[in-house]
Write a protein that binds this DNA or RNA. Sequence first.
DNA 1: CTGAAAGCGCTTACAG
DNA 2: CTGAAAGCGCTTACAG
Lengths: 336, 336
Amino acid sequence: MRNIKEIAQLSGVSKSTVSRVISGSGYASQEARDKVLKVIQELQYKPNAVARAMVSQRTHNIGVLIYRREYPVASHPFYGKILDAILASASSMNYSVFVTTDHEMSLRSADFMLEKRVDGLILISRLEQNVIDHIGKFGVPYIMVNGSTDVPGVIHIVNRDQSGGLEAARHLSGLGHKRIFMLAGPQSHRSHHLRLEGFRAYMNGQRVEFGDSDIAYLLSSTFEEGYRMMKEHWEHFRSRAYTAIFGTNDMIALGAMKFLMEHSISVPGQVAVMGFDDNDVASILTPSLTTVRVDTEKMGRLACVMLDKLIRHEPVEETAVELEPELVIRDSTQRF
Amino acid sequence: MRNIKEIAQLSGVSKSTVSRVISGSGYASQEARDKVLKVIQELQYKPNAVARAMVSQRTHNIGVLIYRREYPVASHPFYGKILDAILASASSMNYSVFVTTDHEMSLRSADFMLEKRVDGLILISRLEQNVIDHIGKFGVPYIMVNGSTDVPGVIHIVNRDQSGGLEAARHLSGLGHKRIFMLAGPQSHRSHHLRLEGFRAYMNGQRVEFGDSDIAYLLSSTFEEGYRMMKEHWEHFRSRAYTAIFGTNDMIALGAMKFLMEHSISVPGQVAVMGFDDNDVASILTPSLTTVRVDTEKMGRLACVMLDKLIRHEPVEETAVELEPELVIRDSTQRF
DNA sequence: CTGAAAGCGCTTACAG
DNA sequence: CTGAAAGCGCTTACAG
């Protein structure tokens, strides 16, 4: 790899001048400019971003940390979407992005990014307190996406999950369903918890019967677990004559739907099924899944825009951004 | 952020000594070592990887470039899997990875990675010649995954798609299907082309009738396009009394299956459907999709292992690694 | 075993 | 408008 010194020699000017024409800032005569640019072109010279970062104390790199126990991570139907949006936005803002996935919530990945001196960090998913504390200690700007935190002042972007849960309940209720069974993902996870709460709030408000016996608590938020729990509660489900199912995310709902279809239960004819997220599979399946859409594209984009502000020490108005979800009605639900 | 100089002062030794105890190479008395480590611990000092890279001429960063016209990219059901595998492997080998997605096959992303002085590059998907030439010019090690190239000596990892196509034909034929309709993805793409060729080769070898009128050429390899083309060829399909469909990837097959189900055609009762890749959706759907599995996990892992060898100037035996696909029989195909 | 010095490839005042 | 010098935070011979 060539360097600025070589360019300087070949074009007969000093390193300083070369640097000035490359950066475009500072003076340089047209003549000098032309000579330098010509040599750069000929030699296909690419400025060394590492050296630049060294002196400017800015790497123009950001790190995305995704913590998740289960596979997949980058290709996860929900987190993958956020990642895609981040990648696109960051690129348009001239940031390169390190993507790190971790299965245990260790400090290792975070430390790695810190050593690389990323300009900022985007943390996806729920994080344990010690990780947040650790990162906070180093003064690197960071933003949390789709996760919760008790630490005041931590900037985070979330979906209005409670209102989404409420919409789901309103939709199913509106269709005439009186007996709705809920498959609730891990309640330690903000989203699953709030979706359940929103749902419950609506039902209680309408004085529709909906209690703990109508809820199955899952150990993970996967397709397999949705299927497994549907199977486990099948007898209970039949005995209570439920007519609808709400899963706190699409994969869970899809798992349950798979079980129903294997048992020749018609969806939505006999049982309506509804999920949350609106991942790619939801619209592909037959029947297509009614769900509550989370604006992952906006989540990713906002994360980049806000992180960039933090990095450049610009004021950020809101510390908590809440995105409004959107009810997407498809074939898996219909009037009872 | 603190630096080595500060650590040196606080522990009463020179920067050189601090550097030696951190790197673990070179001499340092136990006493010096203890003092330094203690200070590092107290100050939560993190060595600056940028500075290290500067002098060692090694960033320990690799770049992953994914070119793809359509969304999604990182969350793509197939490429996303490869990416996940790369992320996991790279991390275990102490590399950080820059992920770049690009919609036009420009040199911009590549140049960006080059400027960042990545140790190596993993190129996913088909690349145009000029991109390869461009990257090759800079002497940065790179590996192509799931793409083709005419440039001799370029190390690439691919699936044995031809043999997979052949297996698909053997499977459907073996079930007694005589009239099979193929939905073929873009033939400019190596995988789709070879899958078709393998399939055709088997049919021809068995003297089963299979010609151009049995093939629909799609403009993209998406679910939507699979659906669209199935619709477009529906009359043709019925008039020829096809009993099976082979899509050159799962998404295509799934799109076709969606169309069939919407028209109350039973799968596999009336028509068997088969795909290729074995993405996550394939096993989730009802009926689950028979497919040919591509070992994306191994692809990603090998890419990292081989790239690491190239980076360290170790000999790499093979220039072309071909992975054996595996037939996965599920519910969407059955004896005719 | 230890420290001073040079150097990685840039940028940034500063003097001219 | 231009160039010499210092410095970003490290590592690596080298002399002691």
